[in-house]
Write a protein that binds this DNA or RNA. Structure first.
Lengths: 370, 370
DNA sequence: GGACTTAAGTAGGTAAAATTACAAAAGTCA
DNA sequence: TGACTTTTGTAATTTTACCTACTTAAGTCC
């Protein structure tokens, strides 16, 4: 019987089918790939031996019940950290991307200075073999090579680092993998966006794609960047706190105020949404995404309403006809979950898995997967 | 000796290495791919037999001279057409993408109505086996399924169709294949952009990515699209002709006027460049391309100067620091050359070549390549 | 309980792909 | 001219990646 799929169904590809395509028995895998049962059996055994897949009794459909194959999220861990300029969070996640344990961390002086503290905390939290490390940093990730070097020295596994917004965009994309073109907008102290186009994260030529915080909006104050009327200046967290004249000390408080129905807070957020909507409208015109996701401390229903209002009014009909604008599904742990997605996508990709299995077919090897 | 490259070096991949990676001898191919000489020899023979590659005597480097392998641009032809709402151009190109012969064509009633005339002219121009067809249409290509059907009925070869701006972006990308993130902006009667990000053309979720013509710019007239101040309304070809109050009857005349030094025409174009620069600046902030290419009837030095002025002033420093803004290298035949690139990328891709060779290994087959 | 159904493992075999080893061709250089 | 270098081709062999056929397992249905 000839093969059906275009790509050769390597062992790594079989894992992808189990993990992402909802195929859970050897027989199904054989049908979909067009490969014979013995080949599938052999590949699945490799995955079972490597601890990447588990087998459990299934239900019968009239004959012998098929053993149910599941990706083994407990087959290892990844270490992740979402770092800001002064503080951040870190966590240990399983291979399914679930957070097993997390901690806040102080990184006075930024990620470079604070990476030592992060490494020490990770060491204390470690459980099971570490298969990869994912880190989110503020701003351009290219400037954080020393961080990667410090981590790579302690952990001989793949290390991925990216901008916090890009990482969140990846995390959101994982939850909605039917959407191949999405724009993730983070509204917090700063305002930025992560772009997924054609199913892939777009960083631009020099890593600053999606930096929409300094696009000017009509009417506005002088921004630190030199231009007049950057969105970040008129609708960023600092501006909103200033507008409330001390009634909220930080962004979570502001959000809480709005949730409690405070009319002034609601108005401030709605108006910020309108300003942000201006730049989102421009981005939507340029990119034509299927979905805009709003995340960050400020992305409550009021801000989102403001964004919707402006985008549907300002952006071209062709780009908005089927456009959805929705809140993030990731919640408070967006950064950590995004980091986990980033590194897991890397180490569980068919290529990486094939390479790892070729190098270390035995399960007790110190770094069997990546 | 183990393989070096990740991707299996299939026959199609070997062709790519010869065509795009400047590898011109069997020995070089063997070194780069890590495959043994006999395998390379066999694959190259397949390509020679299929007429996709030519062999010529080379120069010695101290031993037997290596036979020089070149992609055979004369191994077939592709038919291309760049169609507007009322008229267009069509051509026959060789497999290297060079125009062998071109003709204007009237397509009263748009591409659907005029495709018959196009087919007849193509038939008259045909020389050598036709390996593919590429067509550019105004606006969204999804609306032109009937055109594809009509062409496919006469020519049993791959047919590619896309928006004219996207096609030009592809053509420009081919000429600068070191640049993986570029924005092609066409300034003519309409204003639009084609986006190449991460080396791939981005169409967006519903094919309208890059439609920047209807983004509003500060201050402006009422546009047909309902919004106030679309760039296309204030800086599109129609607006500029109106500003010149009859001194130019069409855009080529306007461009000629400016080249001759007419101050009014120069000012009008420069100002249009500034308006277009507003939306280009927004796009640059969002996408962070390495290069913005300006094409279309209006893209002379005056308009480009205006665009540069505004972009470097308005866009964020991170996005403009290494940004280049340049005129198109494609010239008047941008549409046709872009079409050729589009269809050639398709039929000469490693996958397409491998499939074609598997199906028809003999050179005298009517459709050996695709 | 026995026939039927579906799933999975085993053994042996085959065809393709790539390798090694050997041989020949076509130049340079003294 | 002959030694040396580099490229290319040929033949036999090995390796890989499958498949087919058969057997065993484990359930349902009458």
């Amino acid at each position: 019987m000839p093969r059906v799929t275009g790509a050769a169904a390597t062992t790594g590809e079989i894992l992808r089918l189990i993990r992402e395509e909802e195929l859970h028995t050897r027989a199904e895998l054989a049908r979909v790939t067009g490969l014979s049962r013995p080949v599938i059996g052999q590949r699945v055994n490799e995955l079972l031996e490597a601890g990447l897949v588990t087998e459990s009794p299934g239900v019968s459909s009239g004959g012998r019940p098929a053993a149910r194959l599941e990706f083994n999220g407990a087959g290892g861990t990844v270490l992740v950290a979402s770092l800001g300029h002064t503080h951040g969070h870190l966590a240990v996640c399983d291979l399914a991307g679930a957070i097993l344990h997390q901690e806040p961390v102080e990184v006075a002086g930024g990620p470079e200075a604070g990476i030592g503290a992060v490494l020490d905390l990770w060491r204390a939290l470690e459980r099971g073999p570490v298969r990869g490390v994912g880190i989110a940093v503020p701003g351009a990730s290219a400037e954080h090579e020393p961080v990667v070097a410090a981590v790579a020295e302690r952990y001989p596994v793949p290390v991925c680092i990216d901008n916090d917004v890009n990482v969140m965009a990846l995390g959101e994309h994982r939850l909605r993998h039917d959407v191949d073109d999405l724009l993730f907008v983070k509204a917090s102290t700063g305002i930025g966006a992560g772009i997924v186009s054609g199913g892939r994260l777009q960083r631009g030529a020099y890593g600053s794609a999606g930096e929409i915080g300094h696009i000017p909006v009509p009417d506005g104050l002088l921004c630190g960047c030199g231009t007049v009327g950057c969105v970040e200046t008129v609708a960023g967290g600092a501006a909103l706190l200033a507008q409330l004249e001390g009634r909220a000390a930080n962004l979570p408080e502001l959000a809480a105020l709005a949730r409690a129905g405070d009319l002034e807070a609601v108005a401030v957020l709605r108006d910020a949404g309108r300003r942000i909507g201006e730049v989102v409208a421009a981005s939507v015109n340029v990119l034509n995404p299927a979905l805009v996701v709003l995340g960050g401390d400020l992305a409550g229903k009021n801000l989102i309403a403001g964004v919707r209002e402006t985008v549907y009014q300002r952006a071209a009909a062709a780009a908005t006809r089927r456009l959805r604008i929705e809140p993030s599904l990731l919640g408070d742990d967006a950064g950590l979950l995004g980091c986990a997605t980033m590194i897991l996508d890397h180490i569980l990709s068919p290529r990486a898995v094939d390479t790892a299995l070729r190098a270390a077919p035995s399960p007790q090897d110190p770094t069997p997967v990546p």
